[in-house]
Design a protein around this nucleic acid. Structure first.
Lengths: 130, 130
DNA sequence: TCTTGACTTAGAGTCAACTTGAAGTATTAG
DNA sequence: CTAATACTTCAAGTTGACTCTAAGTCAAGA
């Protein structure tokens, strides 16, 4: 029988987060209170893992924890908040699109600069006989 | 005669940075020591402005100040360091490409999620008679 | 029995990159 | 003369997101 519940240590290994951070997220309201085993240890369910993975996606795309927490709270209130949650995601999606566009612009500026260096170095080789 | 030199206040307005930050960058070695007017006030030359603009591009793409400073120091040493500088830019460019790719992946995950909400809301409209 | 992994509360420390404030001086435009 | 703008040094405060330490308890497995 595979167990569908994992410990905090296992989840830490799985996600690369520390157990500290996992408890910190729970205390911060990003993760809802996690179910416990008889001994009081946290038992994360598949659902919790999926949610955390989504949270990490929000994080790497630059959503601040406070906002993630707000989204989490809406989620905890059930389907009624679907519209509000979608609005939050759409807002974030736009912000993200803007950021990606900005990065792409900078990337091409970088490419230009690198091209200039390439030419400069081709003309005046840094180390060569004659 | 248009003046090619601008004051710290003007540059602050131009870039959206504070004068504090501009002096901070200079002290941190990101900007080389800026030329002074007779009264000791900083006079930024067009070149300084261009360099600052490039620095800001490095910044928004996530290069840490310490690394920017290092690049600035190479630059100050002249053409000899062209290869080293190009290497730094190429390294950063790769890092940036990875980041952009990661963001794009997350963006499509977000789109999926938004799509799910859209269907959910279409099925069970949030506010509607009957 | 001892190690491992977990639990709790409470608080301090870290890091980057500013940001603010104080305190005093100097120059220039109106 | 006064207001605006700038200069200096030095130090303390802020923000976000952890990260770590302490101090003590508990329970299951080899």
């Amino acid at each position: 029988m595979t167990n569908h519940f994992i410990s905090i240590g296992e989840l830490a290994r799985l996600t690369g987060l520390s157990t500290h951070t996992l408890r910190f997220y729970e205390a911060a309201g990003v993760l809802k209170p996690i179910g416990r085993a008889a001994n009081g240890h946290r038992r994360y369910q598949p659902n919790d893992v999926l949610w955390l993975e989504f949270v990490l996606k929000l994080k790497v795309t630059g959503m601040p924890l406070a906002e993630i927490k707000q989204y989490a709270q809406l989620r905890a209130q059930g389907e009624i908040t679907a519209t509000a949650r979608m609005a939050m995601l759409q807002f974030h999606r736009q912000r993200l699109a803007a950021k990606i566009a900005e990065l792409a612009e900078c990337a091409s500026a970088l490419d230009d600069k690198i091209g200039i260096y390439r030419k400069m170095i081709a003309k005046a080789p840094p180390k060569r006989n004659r």
